[in-house]
Design a protein around this nucleic acid. Structure first.
Lengths: 173, 173
DNA sequence: CCGATAGTGTATGATTTTTAGACACTCTTG
DNA sequence: CAAGAGTGTCTAAAAATCATACACTATCGG
């Protein structure tokens, strides 16, 4: 059961961290908890982390979530392939949208449902682990660009930076 | 100024549609309004639409947004490259997250700020129009997979479906 | 300590893909 | 109708990719 690796939980509320340890201990091989986000990057450099559960509100009284977004970007910059699930007590829709567009894997609200949280985290990890063959990525991208050019092969080829003949070959395949 | 093409606005409130026509008429070359979502696909087949502004709550009294998500998926299935911006009067964070994960370009809440709405729509269109060269997509994907395999070149090459030597060449480049 | 296993870095020649350039054809539009 | 843009196809040269191979290093269990 404990095959979902290492999770890093960051929250300035010790009670939440304790709850997380108990709730997630049965699912993850290792649960690392941090009360302050300053040491996130240091921790991630020392330890291989599979997923981060990041609280958005660190500065008491300032609940704009800016801090959380900042840390999200820092994590994403250094570790682009580690999924980050955001947590907030305040169901701020703008914050959620910003977070997801900034690269968060998902978004949950406090108080959370344990089963749902675990499912969300598992999904995030599974999705981050899935690897697509190069050929498939290429085919998909070619398809989209041709679509975007509304079937104009010449223009699509130019945008893609390849020859028209090569594009024909790739479409056929 | 009217170079942002055609927008399709779908909302069951006629007042909203009128407001949209006035507000968006100065920005979009053509503003098509629909009071019911049933004819979305038919409309999009006849007319080239550059962006869709889709209300999430059609069934009065049932505000789960399920209808909106359903229509979003229909649009996305037939026209994967037309950005869809979702609208809701109820700041339901779960709905927003679901919508974005289902492929929506962005999410705005009623009542909207006109300037912000226009900016959101423009961003969605600009982003949908940008085309990345094939080489760049390939390089990016290769980088991510090698990262995911924690530097194990052999495994990364296998996952990508290419030879180890070819991967070396691609990394060097 | 040894052998097995897995990974690295590099090389070679055969095979495949991509490219540049060209040709004839079909549209659309002024 | 003439011009411009796009299509579909061909050839030969250039480039990329492949299978295979060899020597080397690192790790791990017996």
């Amino acid at each position: 059961m404990k095959d979902y690796g290492t999770i890093l939980v960051v929250d300035d509320n010790p009670a939440i961290l304790t709850a997380a340890r108990i709730c997630l201990g049965g699912v993850f091989g290792k649960v690392i908890t941090l009360a302050s986000p300053e040491s996130i990057l240091a921790t991630m450099n020392q330890e291989r982390v599979d997923v981060v559960l990041l609280d958005m509100n660190f500065t008491l009284g300032v609940n704009s979530g800016q801090d959380g977004l900042l840390w999200l970007r820092s994590i994403h910059k250094r570790h682009p392939d580690v999924p980050v699930v955001l947590v907030t007590a305040y169901a701020d829709i703008k914050l959620a949208v910003r977070g997801l567009k900034d690269g968060a894997a998902d978004f949950v609200t406090k108080p959370w449902d344990n089963a749902e949280l675990v499912r969300t985290l598992k999904d995030a990890i599974d999705k981050s682990k899935e690897i697509v063959p190069l050929e498939e990525v290429e085919a998909e991208h070619v398809r989209r660009v041709v679509e975007k050019c509304h079937g104009n092969i010449s223009k699509a080829a130019e945008m893609l930076g390849i020859t028209r003949q090569t594009l024909y070959a790739k479409i056929k395949k």
